[in-house]
Amino acid sequence: MDKEPEDLFARLSAEGRQLVPVSYRFLHASPLAVATVMRLVDSQPYRATGYVCSAFHKPISKCCSQDDV
């Protein structure tokens, strides 16, 4: 599905290549999904639309038996 060359530099025109610094030849590409796997919510007290949610650092209750908790 991704018909674009992975390398962004390869997509630049001849003029484009002349105009960008050397570091553009060594861009590090990664799937966009990796960068945006996040749970974000609104939070009223802080006027934030991207309030980051993640699991609490320790268990809150301990009701489940060992096996695959």
Binding site: R39, H57, K62, C63, C64, Q66, D68
Partner: peptide, 28 residues
């Protein structure tokens, strides 16, 4: 993708008396 785990367990966790289990799965 967002790391949310869904688990079905056959054990009945039907009262607070089920709590207080100590095992390595609960180590933080």
């Amino acid at each position: 993708r967002r790391g949310v785990a869904v688990t079905y367990r056959t054990e009945a966790i039907d009262s607070p008396r089920c709590c207080g289990k100590i095992h390595p799965g609960y180590f933080a």
